[in-house]
Design a protein around this nucleic acid. Structure first.
Lengths: 217, 217, 217, 217
DNA sequence: AATGAATGAGTATTCATTCAT
DNA sequence: TATGAATGAATACTCATTCAT
């Protein structure tokens, strides 16, 4: 009878579910430590301690430090990407899409604090950083993301709402402002969170930069 | 009379000049290797090889790897800062100042490729990166830079040329666009340099984002 | 029932006992190499080779060379101190106590050959040696040792057996003679061990110096 | 005319005298630094700084660090030996000779503080120290010193003043007490020097240990 | 002779990775 | 599977010694 509810768990046995949970624990511990210390200053031992596993167990799940790191980043990228696909892409109104993206990005910055810069630096619009080695397979996410972002901008432009510019330029504009303001506020905030006022500013700034006159700011 | 030619060399003796040159050579080698590999993957031995000195000589000039790195970054920051003070700050016309800044930043990106991200991430508008440890003394450059940038934006706003926004927001806008576009073009370029067309786009995008209607640049 | 045999091993598991044995092996190897070469000429690599472990393993047990050295010296000091407390202190007869101390010290010299000088030079009666850095925590052993030694001398004096001198002076006298003769014989001996004749001489010399007339020892 | 006085300078030219003086300066600087830090922690650079010469100049006078050290120790040994030959050996009265030796040794301890232990550890009665490598040529000084010391003790014994023991044992006794008390007082003294009272104690202790009854202590 | 910059062999230490239990 | 002790390659850093000026 104990086995019955497993049908609800993606068809995984108890063993499999446990293994999957352990894997998640290690990823979470890794994200925490890498975010605190950076890739080179983090040690497997410390991650193991944080995950409450032994060093050897880490290696039962991930073949080496590099792989563990890439998996963590991959999961961040995937989560960010999926959020974008789910929350932003289906929105037909370009202005609303931008507003939603502003909110989403702020959330992503807040949630992934110490590692978001790795995601952003590997974007086409991110600064080249020789230390941050992302395997090329992540490129597909970035390309798809940018295509969708361009599509939104193209729609805005074609509807005469945004400037009559190449969509890619509009997308870069959006990215640049979004990331710069979010980074600035998160660095400055002394314990305080991002407020609705911040969001309002971000909406105003991004929309104006896209060439869209904003009424009541 | 032996002393005469020295008057032209900052009053330095040949020995002193040679020492200064060697120091520069090491800094140049360090910049090259750190830019290629990043701080942690660069080794003193490789830097020494690049500089055509022995390992020990590196340590005669810099007390450790960290110090060498900080000195390299410091010199980049200082150079960037001085260029800004000399070329941009004295310009009374806000629009022209922005155009000049666009050109300057592109040059800085091109010149310092692999390390410019360290400078930018330590700006108030840069992303938090636990790996990029700059000693707090550089803060003064950043503060002064931002103050000047805000002053330019304030002038533009007060003259009714830029949007009626807080100068700090205008400055962040400018920074965000500048760095995003420069990074994008430098990552994409397949050997090709930044062209005047790129600069024209940058002028158009930044000025529009600042709220300034541009006719035909 | 599996637990039964462990009760006989200080309650340590096999793993723990093995770890403890390895630690002892490293300490022994360290004592041997440090004794042969001295602190600065000994290398961790050589100690590791002697202990039949890798370099890294040494560092799993001791955080650095200095600590390893101090632990070795500490264990010698503790052993010497405990022997003294067990064998000498309880002896009520001052003359017999001195005789026993003579024998004990000779044994200690023989057993710790190359490192006994570190112990002795950190005694209040030892020569100042800037190279021999013992952490101050060992002071307590020395103080306690000297107090006990003084107590023995005081008893001998009060019983009219030793000279009517300050006990401290008697203790220093004893120390000086003990160490000087032991050192001399151990340096000179060409393979030969310390003989009963040597001990007899030591008894005669020390007791006479303490002011105690010896008949036929 | 300036050259005339040189006849009084061992027939050395000004050049030669200057060179000799520089050599002495380096030896003095070396003694100071080696005494402070010990052989391994002292650096040639620091000695050069103390001597107010460059590193290269040190090597013009001494072929390497080891040699410089040995020369310093040699000069201490020679000085100590010569003082002994001059002040103690000619004294016919054994008791007075011991008293004079006590005073001399205290002076030597005071003068050579940080390096006297090197001299003493290389005596036949000194503790074996693997770190202190004295070239075997110094052995002659030690042998001659001990022979003379034994001769004094033999005289005292033959005159019925000292115990009827082997002179070598008497000599070791003397050495042991002398060095132990001197070391103790020098370690303990809080700025205060060795006083006449200390000397009186030393006389009493050494003479009693040699079997010589002392009247008014 | 005096200088001090350059050299590079020598070593302590770290830490990702392995593997026997 | 989980463990954690053992491994050893990699590297920063030191400092005695050399040598061109």
């Amino acid at each position: 009878m104990k086995e019955a509810p497993e049908d609800l768990n993606d068809g995984l046995s108890r063993k499999e579910r446990e293994r999957s949970r352990h894997r998640q624990d290690i990823l979470a511990a890794g994200e925490k430590i890498f975010a605190q210390k950076g890739y080179f200053n983090a040690t497997i031992e410390e991650i193991a301690r944080e995950a409450e596993f032994s060093v050897g167990t880490i290696y039962n799940f991930f073949s080496n430090k590099e792989t563990l790191y890439q998996e963590i980043i991959r999961s961040i990228i995937e989560t960010c990407y999926e959020d974008f696909q789910r929350e932003i892409v289906p929105e037909p109104d370009p202005v609303l899409a931008v507003r939603l993206l502003n909110r989403l990005r702020i959330r992503q910055f807040e949630r992934h604090q110490g590692l978001i810069h790795v995601v952003l630096e590997n974007m086409p619009s991110g600064r080249f950083n020789p230390e941050l080695m992302l395997s090329p397979e992540y490129q597909q996410y970035y390309e798809s993301y940018f295509e969708n972002l361009c599509a939104i901008c193209a729609r805005g432009r074609d509807q005469g709402i945004f400037s009559n510019e190449e969509p890619l330029l509009l997308a870069l504009t959006l990215e640049g402002l979004l990331n710069t303001f979010a980074a600035y506020w998160l660095k400055k905030r002394a314990g305080g969170a991002i407020t609705p006022e911040h969001i309002a500013i971000l909406d105003r700034v991004t929309l104006r930069a896209l060439g869209c006159e904003v009424r009541h700011p």
